[in-house]
Computed example of a mutant assay.
Amino acid sequence: MQWNIPNILTLLRLLAAPSVAVMFLYFNRPYADWFALVLFLSAAITDWFDGYLARAWKQETKLGAMLDPIADKAMVVIALMVIVGYSSMSPWLVLPATFILFREVFVSGLREYLGDTAGTLKVTPLAKWKTTVQMLAISVLFAQGIFEHYLGMSAWGMDQALVDRIMMGEVEDLQGLKWKFIAMEWTGRLGLWLLWLAAGLTLVTGYDYLRKAMPYLRERR
């Protein structure tokens, strides 16, 4: 195995994947959301950075080619698991997450079955866009969790009638409930839109990989 800076960055990204979930074991929310968001964004940035360095320094290796997609999938799968687990289990969130998880398992199984011919399933430009949109969606959904919990902290001790009067402008908004509510609503909507877009790209790229693999899956007569 050849260790260089791009490969080390990829390995660190792989190790960061379970750390996203660990944040919710050791920290209360919204601090856990903050740490998970920073960790996830840092990993997403290194995803671009290690690939760029490997190409620029001509340090592309088999180890890096193997670890890179595993790290990407681990980051996305674990982060989605955390978001869904700490959500209200809305079908609008669960369904796209299910499509994404199914596709990742399906394509991984295809690559494993094809073995030496798995090179036919090289990462396409559309698949890279899929990964980018997935990471954007997850980042925005982590941000939504942050605003949601700051809103709850700011409204702590208030009854619903007082909160309603503040939101209607009848009482001065000293705690910033309005902007926190708006931020929570819009990051939630944007995160869902991006997640559904990522799910659509996930299904398209999954079908593309299946189509390329079909000649190798037919039974010989």
Rank of each mutant, 00 (worst) to 15 (best):
V82W: 01
M135Q: 13
L15K: 07
P18D: 05
T117K: 09
P30L: 01
M135D: 01
I5N: 08
T46W: 00
M158D: 10
M214Y: 15
W156R: 09
E170P: 01
M1C: 12
G191P: 06
M75V: 08
G200I: 04
L201V: 10
K128D: 04
T132P: 02
G115I: 11
F147K: 08
L121Q: 05
A17V: 12
I83M: 11
L67V: 06
V123I: 10
L194I: 07
A17I: 11
L201S: 09
V84D: 00
L25D: 11
F102K: 00
L63V: 15
L25I: 10
F40H: 04
R55G: 08
G157N: 15
P91F: 13
V20Q: 02
L67C: 09
W179A: 05
L195Q: 11
M1E: 03
K73W: 12
A79S: 15
G169I: 03
L203V: 12
D47R: 03
V105W: 06
F49K: 12
D33A: 08
E185L: 15
D116N: 13
M153N: 08
W179S: 11
L151M: 12
N4K: 02
F106E: 07
M158T: 05
V20R: 00
Y207E: 07
W196V: 00
A32M: 01
D72R: 00
I78M: 10
H149P: 08
